[in-house]
């Protein structure tokens, strides 16, 4: 037996580099431009398939069709940025079209505001349930989806309700600067205003911190619960506004009118590159995503794909987009 062997390390452990990793990876760069790349590719493909597609008339029509989807996806994006998901948007939107058609004769010109406020309040209730009862947002809004659908069916007697006063929303069918449909302009405005408010205030920090790491956000003393409830409120209000757009276009409210918009809205968010796990993304991305989804929708018949395939495409898009954007190092267990 000898004396203890003590060897000092040759290197100085304090000489640690300040920076360990480099910039964003190639994959991150691609995904950050994904919505724009997809949009341009689609436009090019559709133009090749049908050279008439790149006309002012069809583009205007496509953009007008996209307006409710843009608004719906924009609101839900906020919830996703906070790390949650709002599955109730489509059902709430359908319910709101019924509200709109039913309230218009009595409330008159203020119906739009009333519907947006009511839908916002319903969104807030979901947010409060999620925060106070500590139920996953997925479950709360899945329940909400079913409840809102049922309420819509009950109060509408399970049928469409005609919009009696078309003048109340006729302004939505006007054009801005001659070419831009008013409904799309409003959708654009919604995205711009919400984005700007978030950007210019501490809200951006709050939302991103909540989405990336809720426990860190809470321990930093940020108003996590308030931010989440606000996100659900905005999501609900956006569903209300989308309902006004749908009802004004169809001249009626119906308990299932927006039900087929849930999948496209989620597809718009993930195609835009907003991380489904929260934190990373923006409303502008969802705007681009919604345009991509709309182009697909109007473009499929052009290239001769039956519309029954639409749903298959949405499903595939969502899975593929999340597969591309999901940061698996952040999620310990994929449930």
């Amino acid at each position: 037996m000898s004396t203890p062997v003590i060897a000092e390390p040759a290197s100085n452990p304090a000489a640690e580099p300040a920076i360990v990793k480099g910039g964003p990876t190639a994959a991150q760069r691609v995904t950050s431009f994904m919505p724009v790349i997809a949009l341009v590719t689609l436009l090019a493909a559709l133009t090749i398939a049908d050279p008439d597609f790149l006309s002012q008339r069809s583009l205007t029509a496509a953009v007008r069709t996209s307006a409710p989807l843009v608004v719906l996806a924009a609101g839900a994006t906020l919830v996703v940025l906070c790390g949650g998901i709002d599955l109730s948007i489509a059902a709430l939107c359908s319910l709101s079209t019924v509200f709109f058609a039913m309230w218009l004769p009595d409330v008159g010109g203020l119906t739009i505001l009333a519907v947006v406020a009511a839908a916002g309040a319903i969104g807030a209730v979901q947010g409060i349930a999620h925060v106070l009862l500590r139920i996953p947002s997925f479950v709360v809004t899945l329940g909400g989806m079913s409840i809102f659908s049922a309420i819509a069916l009950v109060i509408s007697d399970a049928g469409p309700i005609r919009v009696v006063d078309r003048d109340a929303t006729s302004w939505l069918n006007l054009y801005v600067a001659g070419y831009v449909p008013m409904s799309f302009f409003v959708a654009f405005l919604v995205v711009a205003v919400i984005s700007l408010v978030i950007k210019l205030t501490p809200l951006e920090s709050f939302v991103r911190a909540t989405g990336y790491s809720e426990s860190a956000a809470r321990l930093a003393g940020t108003p996590v619960d308030l931010v989440k409830v606000a996100a659900f409120t905005v999501s609900g209000a956006c569903a209300g506004l989308a309902a006004v757009m749908l009802a004004s276009r169809n001249f009626s409210g119906s308990p299932t009118m927006a039900d087929n918009l849930l999948l496209p809205a989620v597809a718009a968010i993930v195609v835009g590159g907003t991380a489904i796990t929260g934190g990373h993304g923006s409303l502008w991305r969802s705007l681009a995503g919604a345009l991509v989804v709309t182009l697909l929708r109007v473009g499929l018949p052009i290239v001769g794909v039956p519309s029954a395939w639409e749903q298959i495409l949405y499903g595939a898009i969502i899975v593929a987009a999340v597969a591309l954007t999901l940061d698996r190092s952040k999620v310990a267990i994929i449930k």
Binding site: S205, R208, A209, Y212, S213, S215, A216, L219, A220, H280
Partner: peptide
């Protein structure tokens, strides 16, 4: 996990709690 928000910047992490220190009004 709890101390910092990894993907956010040094600046935003530093001012995350005391937002007033970087704001004028809202």
């Amino acid at each position: 996990i709890e101390g910092m928000v990894g993907p956010m910047s040094v600046a935003d992490n530093m001012t995350l709690t005391k937002q007033k220190s970087r704001c004028a009004g809202p």
